[in-house]
Amino acid sequence: MKDDLSAMLPLAPAALHILLALAGEDRHGYGIIKEVARQSEHHYKLGSGTLYGNLEKLLDRGLVKATTGRTSKEDPPRRYYRLTEFGRRVLEADLVRLETVLREARLHLRAAESGKAS
């Protein structure tokens, strides 16, 4: 299974944002777009073509699954997307990878700054 995870990594930026948006709760497509915008403080605006192009891959690879639900009784039933257990582990693995990248980046930047100061 470890091999399966590594084959999925690293996640593309759009896929990472989509999985992050689904980490808290199931969402329909429009909900994912709004959540991605909120999480990125509106710096990253996901278009629906990009969203569904990525969702298709995530569904096919088993990282996400589709369910049916509704927001309220008045709303028509919609397709919701849910992070699978496998998707959650891929997301966690990618976050660990990103943390490593961040840690390395900070170390290098600090070393560069201390070199300048001496």
């Binding site: 497509g29 073509g49 569904y52 298709e56």
Partner: peptide
């Protein structure tokens, strides 16, 4: 692709 996602994209 169209059959799978077009309705949702139109809704968005």
């Amino acid at each position: 692709f169209r059959n799978r996602f077009a309705d949702e994209m139109l809704w968005i």
